[in-house]
């Protein structure tokens, strides 16, 4: 019996191996083609602009691990952003923390509606959230009246929640880091976090084992809505503008980041470190393409191709690792 593996086989066996390889290749290309991307300011700006995706990826991850999916988070982002922006512009003098709490609360309510439909009424997640997506999109238009909000209508204290520099980093990045660390801990260390994995692996057997499956799914989707709501508020604070159709197809990017980061779309698998790497990779790709001269129309196509390539490579390495594990086990017997 040999338990110690060499460092190389450990590395190649890791689920994120394919991802890291793609990352390294793109970084190498970037070093040659667009060295300006590595200036600290550009890098921080890149993370700041994409932080909303990071927040949504955390939200989506909580749901995907239960074996579900939530395609309404882009709509929740637009709706909650509309609620906070509208009432903030009517009450400019109120402290900004109020709007953060409002965002969390309204997002939570949206998430609870999703959780109710999926957890307790047993509607297929994709369809339930497709329905609520239409509803929240409609509500986003209703609450904003189709109007635009410009930077001068948005209070400085409100914007500070996203752009104020604390220890050299904008607040939105700190919030994102707190969420990454907090939910990473929550998922891997707490009882409730492990229950989320258990339900994603097998809902029936975890219900038999005494986990209240409906309640766990309800809480996961509520949390997801809450984070998406916060993301909506931070989006408007970060860009200091609001239109009712913001966040369209953001849910797809969030799902792509999750899957790229090794979260299994069928549930029960996925770790925060993978999602963080995938998030940085995605922001890096977006930034990299936008820095290339005259290639802005190429961004969608390149992004799509890279996701397909990376996920394909990831699946390939995972399958190889599983094969190797199976072989080792059979040798042991």
């Amino acid at each position: 019996m040999k338990n110690e593996k060499s460092i190389i086989s450990k590395l190649t066996g890791s689920r994120n191996f394919g991802l890291v390889i793609v990352f390294i290749i793109i970084v190498l290309i970037a070093v040659v083609v667009t060295p300006s991307i590595f200036k600290p300011n550009t890098f921080i700006g890149m993370i700041q602009n994409n932080a909303v995706y990071g927040l949504l990826a955390v939200a989506e991850m909580l749901v995907i691990i239960t074996g579900g999916i939530d395609i309404s988070i882009g709509a929740i982002l637009a709706f909650v952003g509309g609620v906070t922006t509208r009432y903030m512009s009517e009450h400019m003098e109120w402290p900004a923390i109020v709007w953060v709490l409002v965002a969390l609360l309204v997002g939570l309510l949206c998430g609870m509606l999703n959780g109710l439909l999926v957890g307790y009424l047993h509607i297929v997640p994709m369809i339930a959230t497709l329905g609520t997506m239409y509803i929240f999109r409609g509500l986003a238009f209703l609450i904003s009246g189709g109007k635009w909000w410009m930077p001068h209508q948005i209070a400085a204290t409100y914007q500070d929640w996203a752009i104020k520099k604390i220890l050299g980093l904008p607040a939105i990045i700190w919030i994102m880091i707190i969420l990454f660390v907090g939910f990473g801990f929550f998922l891997s260390m707490t009882t409730h976090g492990r229950r989320i994995y258990a339900i994603g692996t097998n809902r029936e057997s975890s219900a038999v084992a005494g986990i209240k499956d409906s309640a766990v799914i309800f809480r996961s989707m509520s949390l997801c809505g809450m984070i998406a709501g916060l993301a909506g508020m931070l989006y408007t604070a970060n860009y200091a503008t609001y239109v009712y159709n913001i966040g369209e197809s953001y849910e797809m990017t969030a799902i792509a980041i999750c899957v790229l980061g090794g979260v299994s779309i069928t549930g029960g698998r996925g770790r925060m470190d993978g999602v963080v790497i995938a998030f940085i990779l995605m922001s890096f790709i977006t930034q990299f393409i936008s820095l290339l001269p005259g290639l802005s129309v190429w961004s969608n196509a390149i992004q799509g191709a890279i996701i397909i390539g990376a996920v394909g490579l990831n699946f390939f390495t995972i399958r190889q690792a599983e094969k190797r594990a199976l072989k080792e086990r059979s040798e042991l017997i």
Binding site: V259, A301, Q303, G304, A305, I307, I308
Partner: peptide, 18 residues
């Protein structure tokens, strides 16, 4: 390749539209 259909079609829709 055995990739999940959701992720394949999300990214390929970006690709085709791109």
């Amino acid at each position: 390749v055995g990739m999940p259909a959701v992720i394949v079609t999300i990214s390929s829709s970006m690709l085709f539209r791109g």
